[in-house]
Design a protein around this nucleic acid. Structure first.
Lengths: 153, 153
DNA sequence: ATTATTGCAAAACGTTTGCAGGTTC
DNA sequence: GAACCTGCAAACGTTTTGCAATAAT
């Protein structure tokens, strides 16, 4: 399955001759441990608990760096864009809970037939795709059902 | 195929008892005629040629309105978010040229099997999905090939 | 010692809001 | 004439930049 992300990120930094600093460690820890997608502001707030001096600017710069190195992925939403999650290696997409925000990656998107079909029909040469699914995670789904039941009484 | 979008938008405004004003007409014309996805700023710039007094604020408000009524759709990107295109009725996704920005809609995304599969595996109750494909449109593809040929000489 | 990285303050964006005046129905 | 819409200016939140001080290699 997924490789331990935080180690991957740390090694990646070294390989790319970028320095592993205390602020970056704090940020890495937060992202690697997050069960959520997080906005830069959220990351900043959380990482400050471990490293109170941390500036928001550094969060932005670190996110850019990690995205570039492929250890973090940007997630888009219909309203406020731009949250980040630790990325599994290789091609992947996200499944996000619209209620609690929990995010989960999946890899086999199986869009090849659709893409092949569209390439034939439109003449486009398709090489990037963005797919995000949203809905209720098991926990929130249960809660919703329970509340519905309650309301029905 | 697609209904004539501009008429649809105009009628829609009337149906919803919203007024059809000159600024809105200018904006509608631009969006309906665009072969591109356009940012609010782009729309503003273009629509000003027809209606020089137009304020950017009005563009934002009109876009919100049209999105709400379903005549316009927001498109997301990896870098700068938030462009808009005229929307065909019903469920649809976009195919965007990464070179010139030309956008095209398609409807049959055929994600049902994937979604069913993921629901079974993860327990999520999936009800929204966002799919965007990017690549070179036929024109840009040709240009790229021609340039490559040239370079090889 | 060298070079990258940080944090601050301030600028630059994109977007939203309050409000007086103007337009459409 | 009532309700809606517009534009301005100004507020707002997010992201970026210049720069001197600091920390990692």
């Amino acid at each position: 399955m997924a490789t331990p992300v935080s180690f991957g990120m740390r090694d990646g930094l070294r390989e790319h001759r970028r320095k592993l600093t205390r602020p970056r460690q704090a940020i890495l820890d937060i992202i690697a441990a997050a069960e959520h997608h997080l906005t830069p502001a959220e990351i900043h707030k959380r990482a400050r608990k471990k490293y109170p001096h941390l500036g928001l600017v550094t969060v932005y710069r670190t996110l850019d760096l990690l995205t570039e190195l492929g250890y973090v992925r940007r997630v888009h939403f219909n309203d406020g864009c731009h949250s980040y999650v630790a990325a599994a290696q290789g091609h992947a997409h996200h499944l996000v809970c619209s209620n609690c925000g929990k995010a989960q990656e999946f890899e086999n998107c199986d869009l090849e037939p659709l893409i092949a079909n569209l390439q034939r029909k439109t003449g486009f040469e398709i090489n990037v795709h963005m797919l995000e699914l949203m809905g209720r995670c098991p926990d929130c789904s249960v809660t919703a059902n329970a509340m519905a039941k309650k309301a029905r009484r």
